[in-house]
Structure formats: structure tokens, C-alpha cells
Design a binder for these strands. Structure first.
Length: 292
DNA sequence: GGCCGACCTGTGAG
DNA sequence: ACTCACAGGTCGG
């Protein structure tokens, strides 16, 4: 997928199918994408409401339009965020890739690279998973992944997880927190990004800094996020932004991340950053475009 | 109930 | 070369 100012383009790579995409097939892909991007949520209207409620948001929003929560698959989302604890994004991405390559099923080979889907809960529940993930560099998260998978299977597997979409936010969050490796923050990420609980506010180190510096100066003395601080910050943003507070919070979050990214890019050599973009460009040219 | 240190690993700063 | 802090936290004491 690529985007410019006005459009998002997508390409389908499917060796088992011919080049002539059928109309129904095209609609089916677009339905998947519309669901993933939750295009039925009117973001313009929400931005306007949040801007009215919060001067700081209003200031930031101009440069960060169209920040939209994805509706991710809960299984993928849950195990990915178990990997995220006390960790950096680069290593998290690598770990998720390893999960797929090791326990996923093969999808296709494209441009001399094999691609695998995300593993099933059952595959991750196997007893030998912990030891293997340790070897692959998952650290203490290896045990969390295997144990959470086993416990979810016990509870009813994927169906149990999907059912959390139908429960009230607080009940879904509490249920998630019974799983090893899932605390308040990770549970909120899962609620917000894959369980339709748009009011959830994950308070990570970045959100904590934002809250301290801009919204809740009385927290400046506190060094780390305590349970009490977590709930205080969470509640504050929910009251400020309303039922889609989690979406609003992610706008602030992206603005904060951009700030970090720019610093990182400046410190890198220019050859490094231009190399980062080459693979995706080369890939696009050779990819068989079935629909755009 | 709330606070604190340990925890795997990798990386950049000092 | 070599610590040390920190990264989209969680857990047990």
C-alpha cells in the first residue's frame, strides 16, 4: 500500500490467480481494507470535536490529519503487544517477523522472499515454544507468549478473544489482564486496536511524558507510571475527548513519535536513510498490479 | 493497596 | 573499548 495527499493505493500479489481481477474480487479486497481502516468512522467530525475540547490538540491536529486507528486482528495484536514491553519498536518488529517465519504458515514467495502469516494461538501454545523463542532472542517474553497462548486455548481460543469485542470495555480489559505478560498498558492497546474499545487510553512512557508536560503538571515530580497515575491519566483523557478518546490520544502520540523520528533521522547519515526507502520502491515496480 | 527492583536484548550516548 | 540508560511494561516481593 502507498499513499499520497488524497489517495491510498493498494496492490494484490497472488500467484495462484490470473491477472484479470474480477469486480466481486475487487470489492472483497476493498471491504477488507475499509474494515481495517475503519473508514465508516468520520474522522473529520471527531477532529473538530477534539479541537473544540482541547486547545493543544487543535494546534497539533493541523499537521497530523487523518491519524486513524486500525482495526487489527486480535490474535496478531495481542501477541505483538506482549512483545512490546520494555522494548523498542525495531526489535519488536523483528520479533513479530520471527513469530511468523517460525510458527506461521507459508503464504507465497515473492521477490525471492518467503512470506508467512501470523501463527495461530494453538501453534504458540505448544510446550516447546518458550525454549525456541528464547533462542530466537525473545528474552523473558518467550514464557509470556507460550503461557498466554496456552491459557487462551484453555478459555476457548480465538472465539474467546473475539468475544471480548462484545463485552464492556472494563470487562474486556480485566479479562486480558489475567493473561501473563499483559498488564494495564498492553491490555488497553489490545482493547483499543483490535477489540473496538475506542475509549481505551494506553499510558506508555510517551503518553506519560505528554501528560506531565502539557496536561497534568502536578505529575511532574513522579518518575514512573504507577497504577494510580495510570488510571488518573487514562481517566483525564477519556473525560477530555469522550468515547473515541483512544483515537484522539493516538494523534498526540504520533505527533510525539514524529518528534523522536526526526531527531533520529538527523543523527543518521543521509546514505543510511535513503537506503531505507529503496527496497519498497524496487518492490513496487516489479509487483504485479492487479488493482489500484 | 502502593512502591520498587529485576528482567532479556540491542543500541546509541557519554 | 566499555559502561550505562532506555526502549510503546509486567511481575513478584
Amino acid at each position: 500500500m502507498t499513499q499520497n495527499e488524497t489517495d491510498i493505493s493498494y496492490q494484490i500479489v497472488d500467484p495462484s490467480s490470473d491477472d484479470n481481477i474480477k469486480k466481486e474480487e475487487k470489492n472483497q479486497y476493498e471491504d477488507i481494507l475499509k474494515d481495517y481502516f475503519q473508514t465508516d468512522v468520520n474522522l473529520v467530525k471527531l477532529y473538530s470535536e477534539w479541537s473544540k475540547a482541547d486547545e493543544n490538540f487543535c494546534k497539533i491536529a493541523k499537521d497530523y490529519q487523518g491519524v486513524r486507528m486500525l482495526r487489527q486482528d486480535p490474535v496478531e495484536n495481542l501477541f505483538s503487544f506482549i512483545c512490546s514491553s520494555n522494548n523498542n519498536i525495531q526489535r519488536i518488529s523483528g520479533m513479530i517477523e520471527k513469530l511468523c517465519d517460525t510458527y506461521g504458515t507459508h503464504l507465497l514467495r515473492h521477490e525471492e522472499v518467503s512470506h508467512y502469516n501470523f501463527p495461530t494461538i494453538e501453534a504458540l501454545a505448544d510446550r516447546e515454544v518458550e525454549a525456541k523463542l528464547r533462542v530466537l532472542g525473545f528474552g523473558y517474553r518467550a514464557k509470556f507468549i507460550q503461557q498466554s497462548a496456552a491459557k487462551i486455548v484453555e478459555n476457548g481460543g480465538r472465539e474467546w478473544l473475539l468475544n471480548l469485542r462484545t463485552l464492556p470495555y472494563n470487562e474486556a480489559k480485566t479479562a486480558l489482564m489475567t493473561l501473563p505478560g499483559i498488564g494495564a498498558k498492553v491490555a488497553d492497546c489490545i482493547c483499543l486496536m483490535s477489540l473496538n474499545h475506542a475509549c481505551a487510553i494506553p499510558v506508555d512512557t510517551h503518553v506519560f511524558q505528554i501528560a506531565k508536560s502539557t496536561y497534568m503538571p502536578h505529575l511532574k515530580a513522579t518518575k514512573s507510571v504507577t497504577d494510580r497515575g495510570y488510571n488518573e491519566i487514562s481517566t483525564f483523557f477519556q473525560n477530555l475527548y469522550g468515547p473515541y478518546a483512544g483515537w484522539a490520544h493516538s494523534v498526540l502520540f504520533s505527533a510525539d513519535l514524529r518528534h523522536l523520528k526526526v531527531q533520529v533521522d538527523n543523527k543518521r547519515s543521509s546514505s543510511q536513510s535513503s537506503q531505507d526507502e529503496k527496497p519498497s520502491r524496487a518492490k513496487q515496480k516489479k509487483t504485479r498490479v492487479k488493482s489500484q
